[in-house]
Nucleic acid binder design. Structure first.
Length: 750
DNA sequence: TCATTGGGCTTTTTT
DNA sequence: AGCCCAATGA
């Protein structure tokens, strides 16, 4: 095959890059997937063993699709042997192989955020700490950030500033929680998401010979979306590439949007310095979008100060201008999008699946869903509560998890009394004490409860526990002979899960029961697809591992003719002929908490840029003057990003907002008139650039103790009430005295 | 032990 | 507005 015909000169150069480090700076729509695909295919055609290629992608779906495209060139049997997947799934696989070196068994469980948070909660409780001060979610976020920087509890003490921070945040016992949480996970034979990366680093550090083995195995390493790697991931890549130095990274600093989970663009930007002798390839020609879309996006991102300067260009048609539409409320915004979408798709002869509606927060999908249903538009929604996080799915999986890992107390607690079998709080408390005493997990204890109870449990409770253990052991035997989907069916039937849902959800139960059926189907598909693979593993452990790392996106069914609804974050890497971005309002995009910090604001702008550059033909931006948030209607102003786009590429479908004070907003919708609106004093002067979508004001009095996210704790010295311009003077314990606009400041009263 | 109710919290984004 | 959790009573 003649690659030169399929690629432009810049792409061809990158594909033909020989040995040594390479950095591909690939603008949106410039064909970077194409380059990666053909680069790998080319290596294989020239004789590289697929087992010796490691390709790290951002989603499992991206990996699957790339494999398919490579398969078209080199054949499926060879393509599927490439080590290709997300950081998490690849290194979970490696960790299972090497688990014993780190004191885990190869059937360790992977906790998702939900499980981890429950573990944190139980630790906080166990240590007798106040969960109002140590908010589990917040604590877990901090733990996650630390793990991504490879700061383990042991190393924590080396960082004086961290300890100071804890004191300042009034959380001096944070480190104890972190420590205990890690111990708990270890005892349970469990890793959380961040452990999959952190433990890989530990493995390579502790066992240089194992690192050496993988270094020599992976002759070529490719990393996609490199601008979104965090330190932990970066270290893994660095270590693995150290022997051959055949590392190709692909990225676009303008599309770095994951700093909140520890990603740092500097890994990409400093790549040249870190890997001397690197060859840089730049892909700046866009093949995806019309001229108007490319130029409009360029003009937006030009407002960012940080980042590589580059200018995307295209030879595609001029196309239509970016359309901007102002609506009165979120509901009218949604129904306008629905109507416009039908009209435009018809006009262009496109299908529903050619369109996507993007938004900043998952919560914004609601009115869109309502409108789409009302207009009979088929849609598919991604994100929010993903399939595998649904309660009924987690219930079924907990039974299977406990079979695989009897030390997974979280799984045990989830199902020990669901469906109800009369094992209550009291029994579980006793059980927990006993487990501590014997150094056993709850399930291990349950298996031999008569001997271990030591007179602490009555016969009734013991019998119920024994029944449970007998049932589980029965499943364990069946697990040896049944494929996973059949095993799940047996579990569902024997435990009476479906009946429990019928009872609990009443008329609403069907949805939940359908989900359980969908799970069983997914399991069957898993068994079938694994048995087709050369090194396939249709086992329960592998299934659970994949499931823990699966996202909604990975389960996408592309054949369905439906409009896509998703967050801007999830849209990265995708493209659609028709794109709507909704909710372009101050306080929403840019999000409220990000508006006052340059770095954060720039990331919001990149997010908007990512959204716009998804569009091939038509890009439409909408905003609403009022929006329902937290059950209350808030008024909002158009996003600053709208006015940052070069007007030459914009068509306002309604008049652009004048500089004069905005007219009083119409009610959000007739149905909601008068209910729960925020009251606005009539003498209030409209404030320019006011962010009414910000945090709702907190009622404060002098002398109140408050907490601010950035400034820490303080005492309220003075309060001036003036409608939306109400201010408070706060003397912070460590950050001095500040005058805060209550509408903006995120203050919590202590 | 189980079911119901009310209060508090949420919405920034996710492997 | 919806979800989760704690407190309360049967």
């Amino acid at each position: 095959m003649d690659l030169k015909k399929l690629l432009n000169p810049a792409q061809w150069e990158a594909v033909m890059h020989d040995d040594g480090p390479a950095m591909i700076v690939a603008g949106a729509g410039s064909g970077k997937t194409r380059v990666l695909t053909y680069r790998i295919a080319r290596l294989m055609l020239e004789g590289t063993d697929p087992f010796r290629i490691l390709a790290l992608t951002f989603t499992n779906k991206a990996a699957r699709e790339m494999k398919e495209r490579i398969a078209a060139v080199v054949g499926e049997s060879r393509a599927k042997n490439i080590w290709m997947g997300t950081f998490h799934s690849i290194f979970a696989r490696i960790l299972r192989l090497e688990a014993d070196k780190l004191g885990y068994t190869s059937s360790f469980t992977i906790y998702d955020k939900d499980d981890s948070q429950k573990a944190v909660t139980s630790v906080i409780k166990e240590l007798g700490l106040d969960k109002e001060i140590y908010k589990p979610r917040q604590v877990l976020n901090r733990i996650s950030a630390l793990k991504n920087r490879l700061i383990t509890p042991d190393k924590y003490g080396d960082y004086v500033e961290l300890i100071n921070e804890d004191v300042q945040r009034r959380q001096p016992d944070f480190i104890r929680i972190y420590h205990r949480y890690n111990d708990l996970l270890f005892r349970r034979n469990v890793m959380d998401f961040d452990d999959l990366l952190l433990k890989t680093n530990e493995l390579f550090e502790k066992y240089p010979e194992i690192l050496g083995q993988y270094q020599r195995r992976f002759e070529h390493i490719m990393v996609d979306e490199f601008q979104d790697t965090n330190y932990s991931q970066y270290r893994i890549v660095r270590a693995l590439a150290d022997f051959y130095q055949n590392l190709t990274v692909v990225g676009d600093d303008s599309q770095s949007i994951y700093s909140f989970r520890g990603a740092e663009v500097k890994h990409f930007l400093n790549f040249m310095r870190e890997f001397p002798g690197v060859t840089v390839y730049r892909l700046e020609r866009n093949y995806r979008s019309t001229k108007h879309i490319v130029k409009a996006s360029n003009s937006l991102i030009a407002h960012n100060k940080y980042g590589l300067k580059k200018e995307l260009w295209t030879e595609n048609e001029e196309g239509e201008k970016i359309r901007i539409m102002a609506l009165s409320g979120d509901r009218s915004e949604a129904s306008w999008i629905a109507r416009d979408l039908i009209r435009r798709l018809e006009q262009k002869g496109l299908r529903y699946s050619d369109a996507v509606v993007l938004y900043r927060t998952n919560a914004q999908s609601r009115p869109l869903e309502d409108a789409f249903r009302a207009y009979g538009i088929p849609y598919r929604i991604y994100g929010g509560i993903s399939f595998y996080q649904r309660r009924e799915i987690k219930d079924v999986l907990a039974y299977l998890r406990l079979l695989v890992n009897p030390r997974d107390d979280e799984a045990f607690l989830r199902i020990i009394n669901f469906p109800a079998r009369g094992i209550g709080k009291k029994t579980l408390e006793t059980l927990s004490v006993l487990a501590d005493r014997h150094g056993l997990s709850l399930y291990e204890l349950t298996q031999d409860i008569d001997r271990l109870a030591g007179g602490m449990l009555n016969a009734r409770a013991r019998n119920k526990l024994k029944d449970f253990a007998v049932m589980m052991e029965h499943f364990r035997i069946r697990a040896r002979e049944l494929p996973v989907d059949e095993l799940a069916k047996a579990v569902i039937k024997r435990t009476g899960l479906l009946e429990a849902y019928r009872k609990e959800y009443d008329v609403d139960a069907d949805r939940h029961i359908e989900n359980v059926e969908a799970l069983v189907n997914a399991m069957r598909e898993f068994v079938e697809s694994q048995s087709e693979l050369a090194d396939g593993d249709p086992g329960l452990e592998r299934f659970l591992s994949e499931v823990a790392l699966q996202t909604d996106m990975d389960m996408a069914d592309d054949d369905e003719n439906a409009v896509t609804l998703m967050t801007l974050h999830m849209s990265k890497g995708l493209e659609f002929p028709v794109v709507y971005i909704s909710g372009l309002e101050e306080g929403l995009l840019p999000a409220g908490v990000t508006m006052f910090d340059r770095e954060n604001l720039e990331e919001e702008r990149r997010l908007m840029y990512v959204g716009m550059t998804r569009a091939k033909k038509l890009c439409t931006l909408t905003y609403a003057r009022s929006r329902m948030r937290w059950g209350t209607v808030y008024e909002s102003e158009p996003s600053r990003f709208l006015s940052e786009i070069d007007e030459a590429h914009v068509q306002w479908l309604r008049q652009p907002p004048a500089d004069s004070p905005p007219a009083p907003a119409e009610p959000a919708s007739p149905a909601r008139r008068g209910i729960s609106r925020t009251i606005r004093p009539s003498n209030l002067k409209p404030l320019k650039r006011a962010a009414k979508g910000g945090a709702p004001p907190v009622r404060l009095a002098e002398g109140d103790r408050v907490r601010h996210e950035r400034f820490g704790n303080g005492t309220v010295k003075k309060v001036v009430l003036d409608g939306e311009n109400s201010k408070a003077t706060v003397e912070f314990d460590y950050s001095g005295t500040k005058v805060l606009l209550l509408r903006f400041a995120k203050l919590t009263r202590l």
